[in-house]
Design a protein around this nucleic acid. Structure first.
Lengths: 214, 214
DNA sequence: GAGAATTCTGACCAATTGGTCAACAGACGT
DNA sequence: ACGTCTGTTGACCAATTGGTCAGAATTCTC
């Protein structure tokens, strides 16, 4: 047997169908477990159980626990940056900001686990994401903060610190994913009702719109 | 030796000075470690190291890892409910809400670890706090939501869903504790400057004040 | 300062955990 | 039908982890 023909080296070879399907099963299971227990609290056995695989089989695809964690984070982190990137400097401040809120809210609704994974990673000191936070994310936020400042200078918005405004939008939207259990404890079955998300969206849009209005 | 004279039974006896001092050292260390790694991710050895004790010595005071976790949560959870309790139905809506925001922001500043501990506990499914969330917290929020609704009915506030307003305030204030590392990555040394917290406070107060204003 | 209670520790243990490996089972092109 | 490469697994291992225990050291009480 060719000694390079191992899980690590397989990247260079053409990916099999089985490979694709299994790697995705593992990443889904990893997201599930890491987003609940964090890197240290998660166990390979647990991930293997969720992925319905034996542990050695899982380790055939990802040789170390850390590899799964990195892969899960990498697979999702791009999605997380996009909404802010879409904030259009040419647009109308009010509608750009509501559009941004709505996109982030939508993301929290459809990928709550990814949101919690990021939350855990940040709380744990961002050992993996730190470079991205200080790099791409910082650059992106600086850029968009400048846009907001321009809008304010043009008198199209109330004078608000753009960084803290962005933090507020992040906090309020992600809260629906990260603290879902708390919200459920308080709202009970009302959370299942269809108007729930509509009310959340209307409240956020309303407060922020009036909040940033000139 | 009296067989009841153990760590567990000691509660019934008068507490020693050494006991008080060591138990507090352990709880501080537990807060430090649990708030970073969560229950599963934390190890007794780690907590013992932070508390500068040997592991068996630590286990002399708290016999199981879970006991430390429960004690840490219990010691801090009361503090967390208080700010909302202080929301005064007789007061002016605008000033009551800013006062609430300011108290929560102050709490996030002085006890960021406790905030992160709660965040982790909630993300992990609130195995310990669930009863409190569904009990006292829910009752309290229902009560204050009714107050806010009354204010709205009296035309003293914009018509906003009171529950989602409370969630927004929780989210934005706790964000400064839970996502401190992300904020630091973006703001850099600006975060050390004295005006940092003042700007955060001014931005939150401003957005919420205009946001809920009639 | 003797005696008793409390506090502390090294040595130890069983279970869990991350990870390896040799060998077996399937898939697939020829 | 064959050989080869891919995929799968039980058995295993060393390190870590939660927790115990007998006894040593210290503190407290009289």
């Amino acid at each position: 047997m060719n000694p390079t023909n191992t899980a690590r080296a397989r990247q260079t070879r053409k990916r099999t169908r089985i490979q694709e399907v299994n790697e995705e099963r593992i990443l889904d299971a990893g997201l599930e477990v890491f987003s609940t227990y964090g890197f240290r609290g998660a166990t390979i056995d647990q991930i293997a159980a969720v992925a319905k695989m034996t542990k050695p089989n899982l380790l055939y695809y990802f040789r170390r626990k850390e590899d799964i964690y990195l892969a899960v984070l990498n697979r999702t982190h791009e999605t997380w940056l996009q909404p802010l990137e879409h904030l259009n400097p040419e647009g109308d401040p009010a509608s750009e900001i509501t559009a941004y809120i709505d996109r982030k809210l939508e993301l929290a609704r459809e990928s709550p686990k990814a949101s919690r994974l990021f939350a855990m990673e940040i709380i744990q000191g961002a050992p993996v994401l730190r470079p991205i936070l200080e790099g791409r994310l910082k650059t992106l936020v600086d850029e968009k903060a400048a846009v907001i400042r321009r809008w304010i200078a043009e008198g199209r918005m109330a004078p608000i610190d753009p960084y803290h405004l962005i933090f507020m939008i992040w906090a309020t939207t992600q809260h629906y994913a990260d603290f879902e259990i708390q919200i459920r404890a308080i709202l009970g079955e009302r959370m299942e009702r269809p108007e729930y998300l509509e009310t959340a969206k209307r409240t956020l849009d309303g407060v922020f719109l009036r909040g940033v209005g000139k």
